[in-house]
């Protein structure tokens, strides 16, 4: 598979109600590496195996939620091309100067019909994963601290106009539909899982009347054993868990969902499968979401908090 265009999720800026409480959670419990703080007081973190400087930025604010979610693109020519494509599609874009986020190049920011701010960028300082690039060891002390996910994997956002969002991501940004859930009467798509890669999701959306909402940020683990260990670590630290450990029928991911100290939901998960753009998308009916095990395969039921609580 040729990896061009939009490469992967790059960073998310989260609003937290208490900065240091947020840092303790993401750094000490989740086990991310703190890589910097800027003049605005924002704190930058990365997962141990990520090479770029940051993937999660925490900003203290008077409400919880997500400020923006960004994708890294192949190079600056790709960034210019996609910026032009977005404008030609009819979307307004804004250039955020290099350095506005630490160690990060120019970003192209735009608001999508679900009310979320999405960014594209081509450059971010590669600080490495703590392993040498020549004859490296398989892991480092940072990979053994806290839950220690390997990367920020994807996010699920709640907002209106999911059909328009899908069109934009697929027709302009080169994503493809991997799975979907139909509405309660079989109409439309109530939820979509989109990929720009070989992953079951790089971003997902659920139809929701309030714009710009965060359902969760997701962090990848490498084994089911590590997901169970994440459950232990969350409980030891009295982190409130929403659902899991369990497996989704949708994407086949094995998962735990919990809330950070400001109520932003996050996921620690492993598994899924490796789709290609030519695969026929998997469809779930609304019944399939609950009784069919789409949401929770072992329990085959809906979880009200999971479906309704967002920040």
């Amino acid at each position: 598979m040729a990896m061009t265009g939009v490469l992967r999720p790059g960073h998310a800026q989260l609003r937290v109600l208490d900065l240091e409480e947020g840092v303790r959670h993401y750094r000490d419990v989740l086990g991310m590496v703190e890589t910097g703080r800027d003049e605005q007081g924002r704190v930058y973190l990365k997962c141990w195996d990520e090479r770029d400087h940051n993937s999660v930025i925490l900003r203290e604010a008077d409400s919880a939620g997500i400020d923006f979610f960004a994708f890294k693109v192949l190079d600056e020519a790709t960034l210019d091309q996609l910026e032009g494509d977005l404008q030609a599609y009819g979307l307004g874009t804004e250039r955020i100067p290099a350095g506005e986020l630490l160690e990060t190049g120019e970003r192209v920011r735009f608001t999508i019909p679900s009310g979320h701010q999405i960014e594209l960028y081509a450059k971010k300082t590669q600080v490495g994963n703590g392993l040498q690039v020549l004859n490296p060891a398989p892991w480092t002390p940072a990979s053994e601290k806290g839950i220690a996910p390997v990367r920020l994997d994807h996010c699920l956002l709640y907002g209106p106009n999911v059909a328009e969002v899908k069109k934009l991501f697929c027709e302009v940004l080169g994503f493809y539909l991997v799975e979907r859930v139909l509405g309660p009467e079989g109409e439309g798509e109530a939820a979509i899982w989109l990929s720009c890669s070989h992953k079951v999701h790089d971003i997902a959306f659920v139809e929701h009347p309030e714009p710009g909402k965060l359902h969760h940020l997701s962090f990848l683990l490498e084994s089911w054993e590590e997901v169970l260990r994440a459950g232990d670590i969350l409980s030891m630290n009295k982190v409130p868990i929403d659902i899991g450990p369990t497996r989704h029928g949708i994407t086949r991911g094995c998962t735990i969902y919990a809330w950070d100290p400001s109520g932003n939901r996050f996921e620690t998960f492993m598994g899924g499968y490796q789709p290609y753009p030519d695969y026929e998308p998997t469809t779930w009916t609304f019944e399939g979401l609950g009784a069919g095990g789409g949401l929770d395969y072992p329990q085959r039921k809906l979880h009200e908090t999971f479906l309704t609580v967002v920040t």
Binding site: A190, F286, E304, L307, T308
Partner: peptide, 20 residues
Amino acid sequence: HKAVCTSAGLRPGLQTKQKL
């Protein structure tokens, strides 16, 4: 009220709530 309201999207409808 927010938790039980029906809408587009994945919120459980009233019928589903009764089942739950």
